[in-house]
Design a binder for these strands. Sequence first.
DNA 1: ATTTGTGCAAAACCTTTGCATTGAC
DNA 2: GTCAATGCAAAGGTTTTGCACAAAT
Lengths: 143, 143
Amino acid sequence: MQTVEKLTDTLKNNRLKITPQRLMIFKVLENNTSHPSAEEIYKKVKKVYPSVSFTTIYKTLETLRDLGEIKELTIDKDRKHYDPDISVHHHFICSDCREIYDIHEAFTANIKLDDSLRKDFSVSGFQISFFGVCSKCSNSDRF
Amino acid sequence: MQTVEKLTDTLKNNRLKITPQRLMIFKVLENNTSHPSAEEIYKKVKKVYPSVSFTTIYKTLETLRDLGEIKELTIDKDRKHYDPDISVHHHFICSDCREIYDIHEAFTANIKLDDSLRKDFSVSGFQISFFGVCSKCSNSDRF
DNA sequence: ATTTGTGCAAAACCTTTGCATTGAC
DNA sequence: GTCAATGCAAAGGTTTTGCACAAAT
């Protein structure tokens, strides 16, 4: 996602309106690496704008996704998560605490799209989901 | 997933009961590479057992997953899909028709778990989701 | 003034659960 | 006879939608 400042320009260029609620959602997402769910964003925005609705959260997230500013993550079986980091990277989800961690690793360069794959599919991207238990949870398991 | 025959033994060994509904669900899943959703399984079972319920479908899928016989796929943002092929492989989901295809490719061998990754996480598995449009859909787009 | 965004309430979905009944063993 | 499975209805949780009103441009 761009900076909030640049993002407001992008909205203007698309004849979209800049509202306090939206600005707050942008601020919550800016530099956010916690992969929040809609509810987590809602709760944070609600602290500043108590009357904000889920409708606004979902609509704004949809708008940001359509602008290509954020990515909707389908990795948690229970709910969607949102990622303002649209660069190529992958995720680890802890089966215990459900937290999602970023994985920026060099090995991803080793994934070459095979010709047979190219023939059958027009691949626009891929995403690796790692499963397991994070060190925080595996440590606490010992006690 | 094992063959239906072997699966019945596994159930017996776990003191689980073999019912006509379950057998039908097993048959629907056996050698099924279409990654069906619960509803798709429900519809097929319903043709033979019209009074079958979603409860039975979901409960049986849960049992099979807990036995390690099938995998629950979190790749489609709208619903879960079920895969009786528990061998290591990956998937391509068409953003147009939502169909999920298997990807069995040699390049997956190139993914080595980095030491830094091993240090922070106890990785039990990973799964690559490819996104894009399948050839069926990209062909039909032309008309 | 126009047009988009907001928020409420309700709906739409998918999935799970409580419970009485049925059926497998 | 015992215990697990089934099926119904209801509930739960997430996400979407219709619509009137508010706010941004």
